[in-house]
């Protein structure tokens, strides 16, 4: 059964669409990732125009991050104050990101730039995950346990405008979280990602937040940043496809819940290694699309119909 997507202006197979949302949701539930970094390129592979894929992903991430935040919030693992400070930065970042996005659409380079950004991002994530999971597997075979450092003291503690974050037991300057938020905002708006895989390590290593509160807090701020980005996209790029978003949301919410269940039962490292391989395959495909000479060098798009 195929379904017509009004903004993307094409028909796609509903089963393929639901499977895509379900699988990405499952992986995100399992590994606690947003999944936007896989969703957007896979949508593009399906033939969805780049701008629609990016803008619609933002809308879908709103739903998946709400779903995720609730669980963490119930356990008291969300630092709302830190989330708010991060959000200040990311609001400005996303406005810049939307401007960059619009400029790229106008200059015809959006596909290329998005491809290069995704290639860089997926290659780094894939490689890191592969290294990390293979180390864990190796350590398990050698029956080693890894000790982790909990708290870091660094330059973030020496800047002005210090504020107390009771939940995270921190007394740091608000400048680093605002800068981190700004950077994530730019990435979110241009790439259609939540950015948790960058935000989480940044919060742990740069801000020294306790690991237990990091996921909930990042999810919490991602709700708002992707919501703002969705609105910015609907009003400036007109690229959010409500039908596409709806089916992706339904399937990814179900997939994410199943992923959480599966994560409790399965041993993660092998699957994480598999995910790393998937991510790298996607990266290679993106690179090939950029490098292989196209069959048709011309590309036509309708600007407007004159009545």
């Amino acid at each position: 059964m195929s379904i017509y997507l009004p903004i993307a202006e094409l028909s796609v197979n509903l089963f393929v669409l639901l499977s895509l949302g379900g699988i990405v949701g499952f992986l995100s539930g399992m590994f606690g990732l947003g999944g936007g970094f896989l969703m957007t390129p896979l949508l593009i592979f399906m033939g969805i125009p780049t701008n629609v894929a990016v803008a619609t992903s933002a809308n879908q991430i709103v739903a998946s991050s709400i779903s995720g935040t609730i669980g963490h919030w119930r356990q008291g693992l969300v630092d709302f104050k830190m989330g708010g400070v991060l959000l200040i930065g990311s609001v400005f970042g996303s406005i810049l990101g939307i401007w960059i996005f619009k400029t790229l659409v106008a200059s015809g380079q959006i596909e290329t730039v998005i491809s290069i950004l995704y290639f860089t991002l997926l290659t780094s994530i894939g490689t890191l995950m592969l290294i990390e999971s293979s180390q864990v597997i190796r350590d398990r075979i050698r029956k080693k346990t890894v000790k982790k450092k909990i708290h870091y003291h660094n330059w973030a503690h020496r800047l002005p405008f210090k504020v107390r974050f009771y939940k995270s037991k921190l007394y740091i300057s608000i400048i680093p979280p605002i800068i981190i938020g700004f950077f994530i905002g730019v990435l979110s708006a241009t790439m259609g990602i939540g950015g948790s895989f960058i935000l989480i390590p940044a919060m742990i290593y740069f801000l020294g937040m306790p690991t237990s509160k990091v996921i909930g807090t990042s999810l919490f701020q991602i709700i708002f940043i992707t919501a703002i980005i969705t609105l910015l996209h609907t009003t400036t790029t007109f690229a959010v496809d409500a039908i596409l978003a709806f089916f992706l949301i339904i399937s990814s919410v179900i997939g994410a819940q199943l992923g959480v269940l599966a994560a409790n039962k399965l041993r993660g490292e092998e699957i994480r290694a598999l995910l790393a391989v998937i991510v790298l395959v996607v990266a290679v495909k993106i690179a090939l699309d950029l490098l292989v000479p196209p069959e048709e060098v011309f590309n036509l798009s309708v600007l407007r119909v004159i009545f």
């Binding site: 609105l231 409500a242 919410v253 819940q257």
Partner: peptide, 17 residues
């Protein structure tokens, strides 16, 4: 349109969880 899209996302995300 954006607000409605968001509302759908919020309701679906929340009720799913």
């Amino acid at each position: 349109y954006g607000i409605i899209s968001l509302t759908i996302a919020v309701i679906t995300g929340w009720s799913g969880a």
